[in-house]
Write a protein that binds this DNA or RNA. Sequence first.
DNA 1: TACATGTTTCGGTCACGGTCGAACCATGCG
DNA 2: CGCATGGTTCGACCGTGACCGAAACATGTA
Lengths: 231, 231
Amino acid sequence: MRNGPDIAATAALIGDPARAAMLSALMDGHALTATELAAEGGVTPQTASAHLAKLERGGLLARARQGRHSYFRLASADVAQVLEALMTLSHGTGPRRTRPGPRDAALRVARVCYNHLAGAEGVALFEALRGGGALRKDDDILRITDRMRPALAPLGVDPAALPGQSAMCRTCLDWSERRHHLAGRLGRAILSAMEAKAWVRRDPASRAVVILPKGRIGIDRVIGLAAANAI
Amino acid sequence: MRNGPDIAATAALIGDPARAAMLSALMDGHALTATELAAEGGVTPQTASAHLAKLERGGLLARARQGRHSYFRLASADVAQVLEALMTLSHGTGPRRTRPGPRDAALRVARVCYNHLAGAEGVALFEALRGGGALRKDDDILRITDRMRPALAPLGVDPAALPGQSAMCRTCLDWSERRHHLAGRLGRAILSAMEAKAWVRRDPASRAVVILPKGRIGIDRVIGLAAANAI
DNA sequence: TACATGTTTCGGTCACGGTCGAACCATGCG
DNA sequence: CGCATGGTTCGACCGTGACCGAAACATGTA
C-alpha cells in the first residue's frame, strides 16, 4: 500500500509485553540465556523460545549458541536506539509500571545503555569531552582529537589502541536527560575501564550503575582534565 | 515486572499494519481527515475510527475537530523520531513492501520529514550550514550564529523573526542517509519558504519533494553562501 | 426542513497469536 | 552409558483485537 520499510512488523515484535520485557532486559548490553529471558518476560521457557525465535528472525536479536546454552543479545545499536526512542515517547504517558522509587533515581544518575554509560553522568562526561575539544563534530561525524588521550589518561584508555572496525564514536540520545551521551567503540571502552578500575559497579538486578568513591574522584578528574583544555 | 516506561503498549499501537500506514502517511506533517487516513490504512471508515481513537488515547496522534471533520496529526516530534528510528531499523531487513522504484529514489533525494526537509538535499543543506559556521553545537545544543542570516537571504528567512516558543533548531536522524538534517522551527520555516517561493513542490501522493529548476539554483546558492563563510 | 457527507457507535464474526502441558532433542557430567 | 539440565517442537486451548454491516449521530448545504 505504501512505500518504505515495513515498520509494522518490527513494531509488532516489540509490541508484545513479554518480548518488550526481554528486549529491555538486554538493553544493558549483556547477553542472556533463553531461560533467563523467560524469567524476565514472565513466561515459561517454551513460550520464550517461540518469542526469541521471532525476535531473531525479525533482526532484533542475535543468537550465540554455546554448549547447550543460547545466548541472546541485541542485534545492533540501532535496536537499542529504537528502544530508547520508545522509552522517550512512552515516558510520562500511560500508567507507570512502578512508581518512581529510589531505583528510578539511580537510573537517572547513571545507567548502562547497550554497552556504554548513560544518565546524568554519561551526559556530563560527553559534554565535557566536547566542550574541551577532545571530540569534534565535522560533517556530523564525531572525530577524536589529540586532546582525547590526555583527558582519558586517568582511565588508562588509549583511543588509538581500540580493536574492532565498528564506529569509534557515536552519539546516543539519552532517555532521561534528553541529551546525547557517548556510544560506539570508545564509549564501550570507557565503561569497561571504569568497571575494571572499580570506579563503578553495575547493579546486577537493573541497568543502574553505582559510582564508587574512587570513581567519583576519578570521573571528576577526567571531566576536569577534559574541560581544562577548553581555555 | 520491570521498571521504566511501558514500551510494549506504544509499540503495539504502531505494530498494526493499518495504524502503521496511517502514521507513516502523517510523517509529512500534514493533518489528514479520518476518511483520508482510512484510505491510507486500507480499511473502512468504521475501522479507521477505532484505530484513530486508540492512537489518540495512546498519545501518538492529536485530533483537531473542524466542522464535521476530524483532522489528525502526529502528537509530537518525538513520535516522528520513533517512526524514523523504526524505518532505519527495518530498512533492509524483512520483505520490502515494494521493490525500490523511481518513487523510492525520489524519496532519497528529498522528502518531507514531519515538517522539514529530509533526504540527501536536507542533509547537504544542514552540513553546509554547519560547516560554514552558521550553526554551532555548544553543549550539544544547536545555536544559530550571525552567519545564518546572510546564508538564508535568498530564501527570505530571518531566523530572528520566527514565531513560536518551541525549539528553534533540532537535529533529526535521516532515515535514508543515516546522517542528520535540520528540524525544529527553523527547519520548518526553511521548507515553508521553499514552497512559497516555488523552489520545490511536494508530491501530494507521497512524502517526496521535487526540486524545481528555480529551486535547484536557489538551493545551490544557499549552500554556496553557507559554505563560503567557512574559509 | 430535507438531504448529503463525514464520523462514530454497536453488534457480531472470525482469525491470529500468545500461552502452556507434554514430549522430544542436544549437550554436559558423573 | 545413564541421568540431569537447557532448549525446542508439537498440539490444543483460548482471549484479544481487527474487521465490517448496519445504524445512529453531527454538521454543513440545497
